[in-house]
Amino acid sequence: MTKLTNAQIAWRAAQDIHDGAYVNLGIGFPEMVARFQPKGRQAIFHTENGILGFGEAPAPGQEDWDLINAGKKAVTLKPGTAFFHHADSFAMVRGGHLDVAILGAYQVAQNGDLANWSTGPKGVPAVGGAMDLVHGAKRVAVITDHVTKDGKPKLVDRCTLPLTGLGCVTRIYTSLAVVDIKDGRFLLREKLPALSFDELQSLTGAPLHRDGDVADLIVPEV
């Protein structure tokens, strides 16, 4: 059984973003979702430092360092780009104006709690906009490997790492499955066809429930 690559997880998440959606992608892995917008749909991407509707990365050597995203990577202008200050940017976030936020995770609990900013008290703590993003977007989704590098579940009964937000996540796209969170339970929506329900359950830290058919998670090579 081959699990999905990060690009394939990003591809699957991109299929659920509707035309015209205002979208914030967390820094790092979630930024990849922008590459897989289905043809005919155009999302408008928001970045916390104050840009709506930015374009892809410029060619090397063409960077303008006044035109960066929240990950401090260079981006480009597109027709219709808008700039705004930081308080307005987070009004867009907290004020319920974003349609979707897609974030990474260390752990997601069956009640929708998310831990994605701190792995514990060691080192220098840093939070950025993570705690703001989980509140306000109409839909907060997570993309992640199904298990940690040492094989422990990332979909858990209760988060043991410091929380980013309570009850905020509604859908998780993993390397093995698509899982919704509803009424404090994990609802399995899609799984890799080569994987049995019991195998998936054994890699998941809380019960997977079924509410109707579980679809095959089929993603092209990307």
């Binding site: 200050h85 308080a87 987070f90 907290r94 701190s118 906009g129 703001d132 509140h135 937000g165």
Partner: peptide
Amino acid sequence: PQGTLAERIRAGGAGIPAFYTPTSFGTD
């Protein structure tokens, strides 16, 4: 948190001594 930092600064400039935000509720 970044949005709280921005809003605290905005509030400071706007003469609003305190405000309520959903950000960080239930966290450390």
